[in-house]
Amino acid sequence: MTELRIEGLTKAYGPDATVLDGLDLTVPGGSLAAVLGPSGCGKTTLLRVIAGFLRADAGTVTVGDRLLAGPGTHVPPERRRIGIVPQEGALFPHLSVARNVAFGVTDRSARRRRTEEMLELVGLAGYGDRMPHELSGGQQQRVALARALAPEPALVLLDEPFNALDSALRAGVRADVRAALRTIGATAVLVTHDQQEALSTADLVAVVRDGRIAQCGPPHEVYARPADPWVARFVGDAVLLSAHAANGAGPADRGAGGAPTATTGLGTVELRAPAAAPEGTVILRPEQLLLTEPGEGVCGATVTDVRYYGHDAMITVVVDGVDGPVDVRVAGHATLRPGDRAGVRVTGRAGFHPSGGSGA
């Protein structure tokens, strides 16, 4: 299994257009990493530099023990042993499925065998004689993956490959692609702006902001322990509350479980770690809030909106004494309606981001 290592990667398109600004990223061998970020953050440029389509201004790209980009080094794309799955598949329309898959296999004696193996791997055994226009969008993406894997690349790059698929098809194709990559132990990088896609598909999520990695870790860690409020908002729905942390050592500064606490508009909240400063922002997820009957011991709130998604619902409330709306996620169907009164309380522990500092 081949590791990808990127150190200090810099790329600019002009004196005032720095896109990658000293980016560092390591993807362990056999892992699928999702590079997640908003439009213009440098995701596509990163992919093009790794592939060799663009020259880096500074920094290094190493795949396994091969330096592909660095001071005085730029290995051409065709010599990098990197497979690419572009948006919408980009199959050769005049070639059959089998000939598309075999395109990059240079060993003629192995082409037929390798093509059949890859089509079986992606669930398209027997489709070799078909033409691309005879396939569905999802099938075309599977063929594109088979074509990328056929030459046995050291690394696979996936450039937002599910964008053109409808939502009902997207989840199934993602699962098939993930399974195929895992079956052969491929190291892969998926570029996406879709938070759910990154969290549900990848082993590692790297959030890019302004040309650098803002946070990198397993999906559950990035979601549950965002590095700062920006990451929290970008990765998923977030509830951000101004807070004052209790930094004393006495029992009054600890929650029932012995955790440090902070005072917020939703009451006293237990923190995952001691706060680095007294003033800051508590970071919660909407599922950490519970709606109850109004009464003592809970914060009073008025429901302003209800959005039903089938598996859950998001209820927006205005909490007495809290500036701005607060979102609460509930399982299944919501019985509350706009205008109803409810109580709100916090469950679990929260992250804490000091004002002007790093998060806890």
Rank of each mutant, 00 (worst) to 15 (best):
E7R: 15
G8D: 15
L20P: 04
G29M: 02
A34H: 01
P38D: 08
G40M: 07
C41M: 03
G42C: 08
I50S: 06
A56K: 10
G64Y: 13
D65C: 03
P76R: 12
R81T: 04
R81Q: 15
A90G: 02
R99A: 08
G104V: 09
T106C: 07
S109H: 05
E116I: 14
E117W: 13
L119R: 09
G123S: 14
Y127E: 05
S136M: 01
R147Y: 05
A150D: 11
L158A: 04
P161A: 12
A164E: 14
V173Q: 14
A175C: 12
T187D: 00
S200H: 12
T201A: 10
A202L: 08
D203A: 09
A206C: 14
I213R: 10
A214P: 13
Y223E: 08
P226V: 08
P229G: 10
P229E: 08
W230A: 12
L240C: 04
N247T: 13
G248P: 07
G258N: 04
P260R: 06
V269M: 03
E270H: 01
A276L: 09
P278Y: 10
G280H: 02
E287I: 10
Q288R: 07
G310F: 01
M314H: 03
V317D: 00
R329N: 05
A331N: 07
G332E: 13
T335E: 15
R345C: 03
R345Y: 03
S358R: 13
